[in-house]
Each structure stands twice: as C-alpha cells, then as structure tokens.
Design a protein around this nucleic acid. Sequence first.
RNA 1: GGGCCGUUAGCUCAGCGGUAGAGCGCUGUCCUCACACGACAGAUGUCAGAGGUUCAAAUCCUCUACGGCCCACCA
Length: 904
Amino acid sequence: MNETTEIKTWDKAYSPKDVEARWVNHWAQSGIFNSHPDLNQEPYSLVIPPPNVTGALHVGHALNNTIQDFLARLKRMSGKDLCWVPGTDHGGIATQTVMEKILKAENTSRVRIGREAFTQRMEDWTLHCKETILGQLKKLGCSLDFSRESFTMDEKRKAAVFEAFKKLWDDGLLYRGERLVNWCVRCGTALSDIEVEHEERKGNLWHIRYPEASGGPGLVVATTRPETMLGDVAVAVYPEDKRYRSLIGKKLRLPLVNREIPVIEDGFVESSFGTGAVKVTPAHDPNDFEMGLRHQLPRIKVISPSGKITEEGGLYAGLSREDARKKIIQDLEFQGFLEKTETHPHAVGICYRCQEIIEPLLSWQWFVKTKDLAAGALKTLENNQFKIYPASWKEPYRNWLLDIRDWCVSRQIWWGHEIPVWYCLKCNAISKDSSFHQIPNLRGVVSREKPKACSVCGHLELIQDPDVLDTWFSSALWPFSVFGWPEKNQDLQRYYPTQILVTGYEIIYLWVARMQMMGLYLTGKVPFSEAFIHGIIRDKKGKKMSKSLGNVIDPIEMMDKYGTDALRFSLISQARPGKDILFSEDSLIAGRNFTNKLWNTARFALMNAVAPEELGTVPNFQLEAADVWILSEYQKMILSVQEEIEIYNLANATEKMYEFLWDEFCDWYVEIAKLRLQGADLRAKKTAFRVLITVLNGVVKMLHPLMPFVTEEIYSVLKTWDTEPADFLMNSRFPNVPEIKITEETQKGMSALIEAVKSLRSLRAQLGISPGLKIPVICQSEDAAETNFLKENLLYLAALAGGREISFLSSKRESLPTKAASTVTPHFTFYVPLEGLIDFKKESERLKKELGKVENDLGKLSQKLSDPNYLSKAAMEEVSETRFLQDTALSKKARLEELIKVLA
RNA sequence: GGGCCGUUAGCUCAGCGGUAGAGCGCUGUCCUCACACGACAGAUGUCAGAGGUUCAAAUCCUCUACGGCCCACCA
C-alpha cells in the first residue's frame, strides 16, 4: 500500500517506533475500526471496561485492552461486523480523591473552592485525562470504534441513569432508609459493602469492668474498640452462660459515662470469646445494631461523620476517634476499670479508595433491593446463557449472588450522577444546608428536571438531593447505555446484547454481577453472554503495583523501549487462564526477539522473492518432501491455535504460533528451502518460494491480532503475493487450513532426516569440528525406506549438517570404516572418517557413554515389557509403542557395541 | 471462620495418567551469504512432603507443610 516500505529500506533489526506511528495514523484515517451496521455480516460487539479518569493507563489496562483487541481483530478476520466501543468512567470517589490531592498541592481544598468550582475543575481534568487515555489506547493499537466514544457522565449516559433510577423507583426496588453503613471518614461518604476491603491489623482486646449499678462487682467486657463504650446501651451475654445468669436483667453502671445499662441475653454471643460478655453499641457496630433491633434498644451516636466524638460523648466530645481511644483507656486505667490488655490482631474494614479505616455509621441512604435482581442473574448463570472463563470463577460469582445484600448507591461526594430526587423545603421542613444523610423520612419526587412547584403544598422552593450515585451505578448500565438505551434505536438492536466482556477478577462483583443484574432487569437480555476474566498484573515479587510502592511499570515506556508488539506479546503469552502475571521488564525481551524474528523471516522471503506475475505462470509446482511436510505442520498448527482460541487460552495459542514459526518454519523449512531459493533451477525456486510465501503470509495473518504493527508492515509488501489481497490485514481472512495430505513415508522420512542432521551436528560439536569445515560422511542403514528418503534428500543433509562426499554402505556385510568417528540414530549409523582429527581413545569413551545411556533406557523398557500385568492391562497401542522403543534401543545398542569393538 | 488457587530447571511459567518441557538466564563454538534481538551444540529438576488408587502417577484421591487470593458481623 505504500512505497516507503520497500524491502531495500528494511533494517536488519526491526525498529518499531516509526512503523507504529505510521500505522496508528493509517488505521485512524482509513476508518477501518468503525463498525458497519449496514453490512450483511453477523455483528459481534464488546464494550471496553471504561478506565477511570484518574490519570494515565497502567500495565493492567494494557493487558485488558490487548486481550480485547486480540479478540476484536480476530473476529473481524472471521468475517464479523465488529463493534468495540471505547469510553471512560467518571470514577466517583477515586477521581474526586485525585482532584483533592491536586487541590491540596495548590494549598486549597474542595470545601474552600465550593461545589460549583470543584465540579468545573473535575470537568477540565476529565477532558485532559480522556485525551491521554484515548491516545494511549491508540498507541497500543486498539481497534476501537473511536466514533462511539462514551463517558459514563455524558448526556446520553445521564439519560440512561435517570431512566434506570426511575424504573427502579417505580418498581419499588429503590428506597431511602436508615442503615448502619460503611462510612469513610476521610472521603466523607457512605460506601457499599464491597467497596470495603479487610485488612489484618495489630490491635488490642481491652478488658473493662462494668460494675453493677447497685454496687456489686458486675462483669468484665472485652472490646477492640473502647471508644464506642460512650454509646453503649447494654451488655449482652449468652443465655445459658452460668457465669452471668444471675446478672441478666440487672443494671450496670457504665464507667466514665455513669449511664445505667441493662444486662441482656442474646444467642449471638459466643461465651468462649473474650470474657463472654459483649458491650452493645447499636449506633456503631453492625452486630450490635442487629441486637439493638432484637431488644429494642436505643441508639446513641457518639461518633460523627467526620470521625469525631459527638456531644453525646460528654467529656470526650470533639476528640478524634484515635485520641478518644487513648484518653478513654487512660481514664479507665486511672479509675481502675481496665482489667487487662491483650494483643489481638483482627481484620478492620478500610476504604478501597483511600485506605482509611471504615466507621460503621447510622445514616439515611439510598438502597437498591437486590434479591430479585440477583435471582435473574442466577438463573441465566444456571442455564448457561451466561458463561464465565475460566470456569473457576463461576462458583465465587454464584455464591456472591446468593448472599447478596442491598446495594447502598448514594454517596456524599460531589463528583457523580446527581440523584434525581427533589424535596420541598416546606413540606420537609429543611434548609439548603441540612446534612441530608442525617435527616429521616424525607419525602421527595423523582424528576430529571427541577419541578416548578411542590405537588403537595405548591411551595416553589424545591431542592435536589445533594448526594450522587455510586460510580458503579452508571457502570452497571454501560453495555447498553453506550448504544443509546433507553432509546430504542438501530444500534441497540444490532449490537446489544454484546458477545463478550473482558475484565479482571477484582471487579467481578463490583461490575460484572451488577451489569448482569441491571442488564437483565432493564433490557430483559443478558448484556454479554461470556465473560473473559483475566488476572491482575503484579510486580516481580508478586506485590500489587501501586504508585506509593514505586513498583509500577509504565506501558508507554515499555512500548517506546521494546515496541508495542513486544509488549502485547509479552502480556498475552503470560496471561494464563486464572493466573496473575508477575511482570518484569525482562519478559519483554522474548517479545522483542520474536518480533525481530518475524521481521527477518519476511525480509528473507522478500530478498529471495519471485515476482507474483512470474510465479503465477508456473502451471504446477513440484512439491518436495519438505514442502509437504511444512504445509502439513502448518495445517496442524492452525487447527491447534483455533482450538486454543475457542477456549480463550490465548497464551497457548500464542505459544503454538511462536513454536511453529521459530522452531519448524525458520529452523528447518527455511534452511531447507534456501538451497532451492538460491539455486539455479527456476522451477524449483518458484515452488519453494510459493510454499514459503503461502505459509509466511498465513502466519503473518494469524499473528496480526497479537502483533498488529509488525504484521501490518510486513503484509503491506507481502500482500502482492496474496491470492485475496486486502487493504489492511484486519480486513483479510484468517487463513484456511490447507488441504494437504502427508504420507506416512514422507512424515517418517522427514523425521529421519532431522534426526540425522541433529546427530551429525552433535558429533561435530563433540569433536570440535569448526563450522566451516565440511566433513565426509558414510551412512549405513538396513532400513530401505529411510535410506531411500535420505538419498533423495541428500543435498539437504549435506547442507544442514555440513557434510560432503556422502556415501552409503548397502549392507552391514561390507567392511566397516575403522578410522572414523561415528554416531547412531534409530535408523542410521554415520561414520565420519577424519583421520588425524580424531582421538580414538576419546571416541571410544564417548561411544561407551552413549551405550550406557541406551542400556539404561533399555533396562526400563525391558522391565516394563516383562511385567505380565502391564502386558495384559495396558492399552494395545501403549504396549506396541514400548516394543518399538525397545527394538530401536536394541538396534542402537548392538551397533554401538560393534563400533566400540572395532575401535578396540 | 468458610471457600478457592498455587507449590515442576537459577527466575517466570507450560504439561495434568504412559520414559520431564518452554522463555529468560547459564556454558561452549561461530560476526556462515534473513536475523548476534542470531545459528548450532550443551548443562541444569528425588515435579513441596507423606500415604493411597493404578500394570503405570508431576498428572487421580486423602492428609500435612508453606505461599497467595476471595468471602465473612467473632465483640
């Protein structure tokens, strides 16, 4: 397609930089990434997991998108009308946190600049990030339909969010209620259950005495959170616990606070843990909250949303959680209530975005009722309408859906979809500055626009719920919102549902499950019928990559250094199903080398090319054994690659292509073909080149989804010989399996030839014969078929093993060469008469060592074959295979013994 | 506390019932006319440990040890 890629200008070493930049542009200009809804092709669609607009892409994104691009290009090459939708996610808390850091660096803050200005800053930042991210995706070679770029908070997606919210509301699946939620004190917002991570931390178990109000000794409670005692309303013990039975119903005096609280009985308490007595703080502990409901206990809030002790905390009011704990322990100790302090490591909940310790806090939030939604998702999982690869993720996914709890979707942050609910200030008796999540029983109306007046009292002042939705709420709608849902348009009809979703396992519940639930509920369809779950990328030592640890690898830097194809190769070949990738820069070397190998293979082919018009005039090609052999190996390779791709084992598919190109095609076929390609026989040359170009062209096509740049560059020249040339590789067809039949004779002959070459090369190396020196070879064999094959392909043996004057001994009765080094293969004995070069003592030792090995093998084989159980129970093929191996070993042994005898 | 996964060559990983493999690294020879990001020849493993099933086990089963991950309200 372009003149700049003349073979003359091709470097010995492939240099990716210019090539890549050029193709990124060509592809973009040609519009081949765009979908073609009008074509008479079967659609195949997928949506990008939209990266958060928090900065630049990392290696994890590179892996995720390389896998998708692999599939996208592959499916196009299988004739699908492909639609891969790009986009980004506003990223809620995560992005807001990034901006807060920026503001802090500017010596200001979110609160100081105010909501409006803050939102403006976020929008500017978003634009900037989008540009970076999309640019990086292009550089990675991603064949996304960039004309469809979406953002989770753009106008169309806003419409989808409103529609979803409204429908959930109308169907009674959305409610505002007071719950004990996971509250991040730093972010100042509620989080859903799955946004809380658990981390084992060192801690203490403090034993505190609660005396009886009447003056008795009372009992001792054990707690990890002494500061919550300010909000204690009871102490619970196990009903049957003899130690405390007499205290049940009595009053205790709460130390420091002097409140009287009852001793209650509750089956929840484990008598064996701690002291067997549990302090009950319904406002600040999930278990206690439940107990509070069972026993109708009051809730005393002693910790505020900012993490400080409230007025209820009396003396301690205004202290932070941490300071309050210290002071309370001190005071308890001083007043003699602290009985014991034990170290007690336990898991604490931390915010998945800022790692701050989560505070269970009572507040009014919006929740999605999930039971029914999950039931739908479970059903499609059971009947295989939705499949997960690798299947090992099916059970965890299923269990999560079975155990699902209501989804807290409101967030007290500024960056996100505003909740489309309006409250009348008058009816609700509230003001603009109210802390909404602390106000009970608000009455609101769902509306996208501000209602003109309150429908109940006609008051004109209405205020929108100040909270925003969980960022995963809009993410859950992504597979259909990107096509314009709730509009009923052509795009949606053609490309929805999508075929596959590619993502990492860390967001199976946060995202995959929610898309399934919402997709089924809102569209009645499984949003994607398959999920391809990959691992996450860690550093060399297995640690998660993070900026704070300083162990991140920048994909762009790697692309610049080794080439994008090398990066893609490296990522895919390490992406074993269900496994994380321990990624280091070293792993790019193999990719770079392979890219270069492919490049040079093409270079070789083109340097020895026969022009297409000339090639075309040859009526029939004279295929030689090696031609048939490589075509048949090529055939096998295509089939096995297809099988691996079928089960989404891209690493194995990659490995198969790698091995074929390097080990079979380059190391054997190309070397064999050289003789003809560089020889005088034009007809032979044409045949060899035809085979060479056919296989190479096919391999280049197959490798395109993996390494789009180098293959496209090569193909731009190679396509002259393509029988169905395409403008771009992506628009060509994945190669057909060639219809070639290889005879058993040829197959065996080629194996024998390869064996012979290897054996002679090894002999040369052991004798220290310099590579340039041609050696005379005498071949002896009783095997007529193999001998004939070798005779017919003698030139190849000579060329590959560096032999000359190769002669044959027709039978073993002829006198054997005495002054020669020798080597035996299953079919042949080779003599290399090189008097003067050979130390016969050493030679004899070498042969004896070889004999030792054969005898060892033989021992094992004979033992096997002398076992009657083996003979009667093992499969027929297995036994005959062993017999064959035994025969071969016996023959080798006899010949080696003879050689040793002759030398002695 | 439940569940899942892993433990194979120095490192990262394949193999998952028939005599141990790859990439990188390592050793030796070669700058041989596609490629030194290369060619050729090599070295390297009681396949975590112990039992069991089987004619046969790295591969299947059980237990143990050590890693890792997910879920979970033991104060």
